[in-house]
């Protein structure tokens, strides 16, 4: 059966509607959302209400958590200090816009969702703020999936969709104990595991302005990365009208965050 996984909607109503249409037009009935319903974009209430109305199972994203708990997340989530200041502006704007009811809804979202051997998270099983990038150390990536007891891990948060298969892993180990003269040796054979990153519906950063999400066939295991056109200009105008940082509109229309990365690569965690 095909099911769709969406992530990082970021208050971009036009993108969310286009993606839901794309999913509906294929007759796909099961949709799972990996959070970040709000932040950056201009329609936080509209997007939250659409997800509530469609009753789409959703886990809590980093933005959803921060809007509720305040900005207690690690500032390293931002690539630079300038990006951090803009992020803070978007945070305060979003917090002021959201209705109490919608905030309460975000607060109640679970950290993870599970269906059989499929696990759904925003960042990683450890935290909504951890980035599982496609070039992350392969053993550590496998550890995240394996420790969580899953076979396929669906995540978002990086805004770049990918499918990563980790296979034929092994580790040879030698153990020396206190009262033992000769160390013992054994080999750990690691199972094949997959990480599927759903990309971003409302704030894509994969080099194109198209909204992305994934379709997974849970009988064959096949994953399709979908790219969907939507009215980017409409959302960009709404960003500017709302008084949100103009760079968000620029980023949306380009689909990458190169400019922000270049500003201050040396930003270090203050916590």
């Amino acid at each position: 059966m095909n099911h769709a996984v969406i992530s990082c909607l970021h208050a971009n109503l036009a993108a969310v509607e286009a993606v839901l249409n794309d999913i509906d037009s294929q007759g796909i009935k099961t949709i799972t959302c990996l959070g970040d319903l709000v932040g950056y974009g201009p329609q936080p209430n509209e997007v939250v209400e659409l997800m509530r109305q469609r009753e789409i199972p959703t886990c809590q994203g980093c933005w959803d958590e921060d809007i509720i708990d305040g900005l207690n997340a690690c500032e390293c989530s931002y690539p630079s200090q300038l990006a951090e200041r803009r992020g803070h502006r978007a945070h305060h704007w979003t917090a002021a816009q959201l209705t109490e009811e919608n905030k309460a809804f975000l607060a109640e979202l679970p950290m993870t969702l599970r269906r059989d051997k499929l696990l759904f998270v925003h960042g990683s099983p450890n935290s909504q703020h951890e980035y599982l990038l496609p070039d992350m150390n392969a053993y550590s990536a496998l550890e995240r999936v394996e420790t969580a007891g899953a076979e396929t891990l669906f995540c978002g948060h990086t805004h770049q969709p990918y499918v990563r298969e980790l296979r034929q892993g092994s580790i040879r180990v030698k153990v020396q104990q206190r009262d033992q003269d000769i160390p013992t040796e054994h080999e750990l054979e690691l199972p094949m595991r997959r990480i599927v990153n759903a990309g971003s519906v409302g704030e894509p950063r994969h080099g194109s302005s198209k909204a992305t999400y994934v379709i997974h066939d849970d009988s064959t295991g096949e994953v399709t990365i979908r790219e969907v056109d939507y009215d980017v200009v409409k959302t960009c105008e709404a960003i500017v009208d709302a008084g949100l940082p103009v760079v968000f509109a620029w980023r949306l229309s380009h689909g990458f965050e190169y400019a922000e990365r270049a500003e201050d690569a040396s930003h270090v965690c203050e916590r």
Partner: peptide
Amino acid sequence: GSIQSHVKD
């Protein structure tokens, strides 16, 4: 030990 990683994007 070693591990294979296959990425599609």
